Amino acid sequence: MSSPVRVVIGEDDVLLREGIARLLTEAGFDVVALAGDADALLRKALAYQTDVAVVDVRMPPERTDDGLRAAIELRRRRPETGVLVLSQYYEPRFALDLIGQRPEGVGYLLKERVGDVDAFVEAVNRVAGGGSVLDPEVVGRMLGRRSPDSPVGLLTARERDVLAAMAEGKSNQGIAATLVVTEAAVEKHVTSIFQKLELIPRAAEHRRVLAVLTFLRDADK
């Protein structure tokens, strides 16, 4: 039997930190450490060699983007650790800074999503497995800001819907359920997206995260 996913939680609000810990423990995760500031988060994540770090963007000591900077440093020093960042506000630049050139094993959610227990647990699991997760609200706003002269501008409306769902971390099956289409139709759209974004044939999952990264860069222009 496989070992449970090991998690460290960085959150300065005690009630929220304990609530997330209890939620994840009840879902079968092994919460090995809790941290109330960015320095402690980085230190404990490295010491315990955790599988996932759940991190608040704004943490002590400065309460600006300390948690985000700690998460970025954790990804640099221990790439195998997945990072799921929680933010109280819509801040697309934070998502882009976190993802950098490597969207594997990273997630960015608004804090309100923690209340959707099933979706939150799924997000932690996906990040632990090397996938990527973006909050639907963030994806929606980024899609609205896309640059018309970019490769993403070549996509049809339905293909943009599929790409947005991919950015949220959905599988083809999940996209089909969301858009109420067949999986075969989704596969056709995904193939077209890869072609229009000029993503050369590689492992399917790798091309998916490259497509998501193209989408994010385009939205930030």
Rank of each mutant, 00 (worst) to 15 (best):
residue 1 M to N: 14
residue 2 S to I: 07
residue 5 V to W: 01
residue 6 R to V: 00
residue 6 R to G: 07
residue 7 V to Q: 02
residue 7 V to C: 09
residue 8 V to K: 12
residue 8 V to G: 11
residue 9 I to L: 14
residue 9 I to M: 06
residue 10 G to R: 04
residue 10 G to S: 02
residue 11 E to M: 09
residue 11 E to Q: 11
residue 12 D to V: 03
residue 13 D to L: 13
residue 14 V to E: 10
residue 14 V to A: 13
residue 14 V to S: 11
residue 15 L to E: 02
residue 17 R to Y: 02
residue 18 E to I: 04
residue 18 E to G: 10
residue 18 E to C: 14
residue 18 E to M: 15
residue 20 I to K: 10
residue 21 A to R: 12
residue 22 R to S: 12
residue 22 R to E: 07
residue 23 L to S: 09
residue 24 L to D: 04
residue 26 E to I: 05
residue 27 A to F: 02
residue 28 G to D: 02
residue 29 F to T: 12
residue 29 F to D: 11
residue 29 F to P: 08
residue 30 D to V: 08
residue 30 D to I: 08
residue 31 V to K: 13
residue 33 A to V: 05
residue 34 L to P: 10
residue 35 A to G: 13
residue 35 A to R: 13
residue 35 A to C: 12
residue 38 A to V: 09
residue 38 A to H: 08
residue 39 D to T: 14
residue 39 D to K: 14
residue 40 A to F: 02
residue 41 L to S: 10
residue 43 R to A: 15
residue 43 R to L: 10
residue 45 A to K: 14
residue 46 L to C: 14
residue 47 A to P: 06
residue 48 Y to H: 15
residue 48 Y to E: 15
residue 49 Q to K: 15
residue 50 T to G: 08
residue 51 D to A: 15
residue 51 D to W: 02
residue 52 V to F: 05
residue 52 V to S: 12
residue 53 A to C: 06
residue 53 A to S: 12
residue 54 V to H: 05
residue 54 V to I: 13
residue 55 V to Y: 00
residue 58 R to S: 15
residue 59 M to N: 06
residue 65 D to Y: 00
residue 66 D to P: 04
residue 67 G to D: 01
residue 67 G to W: 00
residue 67 G to P: 09
residue 68 L to E: 00
residue 68 L to C: 11
residue 69 R to L: 10
residue 71 A to S: 11
residue 75 R to W: 06
residue 76 R to L: 09
residue 76 R to F: 03
residue 77 R to L: 15
residue 78 R to D: 05
residue 78 R to Q: 12
residue 79 P to L: 09
residue 79 P to C: 09
residue 80 E to H: 08
residue 81 T to W: 05
residue 82 G to V: 06
residue 82 G to E: 00
residue 83 V to R: 00
residue 83 V to P: 05
residue 84 L to G: 13
residue 84 L to Y: 07
residue 85 V to I: 11
residue 85 V to K: 02
residue 86 L to P: 03
residue 88 Q to G: 15
residue 90 Y to E: 01
residue 90 Y to I: 12
residue 90 Y to D: 07
residue 92 P to R: 14
residue 92 P to S: 03
residue 93 R to W: 06
residue 93 R to F: 02
residue 93 R to V: 06
residue 93 R to K: 15
residue 94 F to N: 13
residue 94 F to P: 05
residue 95 A to F: 01
residue 96 L to I: 15
